[in-house]
Design a protein around this nucleic acid. Sequence first.
DNA 1: CCGTCTTGTGGTTATCCACTCACCAGTCTC
DNA 2: GAGACTGGTGAGTGGATAACCACAAGACGG
Lengths: 181, 181
Amino acid sequence: MATGVRQRSTAAQRRDTVLRTAVAAFAARGYYGTSTMEVAAAAGISQGYLYRLFKDKQTLFAAVVDHCSDRLRESVAAAAATARSTEPQDVLEALTASYDEVIADRELLMILLHAQGCAGEPVIGEAVRRCYARQVEYVRAVSGAAEQQIRRYFADALLSNVMVAIDAAAVDAPWARTLRA
Amino acid sequence: MATGVRQRSTAAQRRDTVLRTAVAAFAARGYYGTSTMEVAAAAGISQGYLYRLFKDKQTLFAAVVDHCSDRLRESVAAAAATARSTEPQDVLEALTASYDEVIADRELLMILLHAQGCAGEPVIGEAVRRCYARQVEYVRAVSGAAEQQIRRYFADALLSNVMVAIDAAAVDAPWARTLRA
DNA sequence: CCGTCTTGTGGTTATCCACTCACCAGTCTC
DNA sequence: GAGACTGGTGAGTGGATAACCACAAGACGG
């Protein structure tokens, strides 16, 4: 029949599309709140095959975190390219200024947020720490900034993350305006 | 029998003990990852009665968040009392300095972290925003600090939160040292 | 001491979930 | 074109889970 012309991919390709679609699935309700069936459906494969591609749910989620770690670094790299100079100050300023655009990728943001919550699961905790390690070292390398400045950058970034997560942008109240300022 | 001498409380009292014990239950694996049975067991009541005390799981979790909001404010108030003067700068410094002690209450921290993740659930999102609103306005009132300074305080606090959540204190690597600095 | 109100308990149900396994169908190799 | 390999499915399994309900038992007012 017509559907005989079924798309077949290599396992590696499939793994990749699964990771990309799984981001959207997990973003909404996190690790515990999302079933492997939902993830499989989002990727357009059977749940059975999902378990052939990934050992178990925890490994799958950790892989999703790693994938997001990549995406985040790419985003930040693009932001770094907008700096006026290679002076540490200028680079960090550019990063901070365009961080809003980085987290306009809401799915990415939500995955990282959820991942922090279930960092207690050993495999996932590892992935989260790996993500932070890469982020910090990348920012350090690209900016050459001092510890204090880098710390400040991450603190600001985390605040922005939360503001987006709790949809504070839609709130017109003093507290929200203060944290946005 | 001896157990005939069963403790009986008013519903209000029970509600309170449930909230206190539920904090520990939800802290480990968050809203989605924790069953109502676990919460009931931790409070020493039947699951059925839990549903008499709280309409549903979402309402229960939102109440837990509100309870944590109280606990957090008390903690911060205690920290504010250690300030050298009532100058905004001094008060905020005192708050920041003793924030580590505030989040030594790991359960409280984890609840707030998990709550951010499921702020998409309407009832819970409301509770989280309420929590931030009270926190910000309390810090503003007790310190009299300017918007920028308050914002900085919260950004630092959030970074500390994450460091604890992902157990970065146990990591001996440059990135972890940078973020702790 | 009786009726009523509230605290509190099992048990039930319908659904869902992580994970497994037997099996089908292209495709590559010799 | 046979045999082996790999992509992929669908139906299960055992256990958990949110929410409901009928009913028990202690307290309390009259």
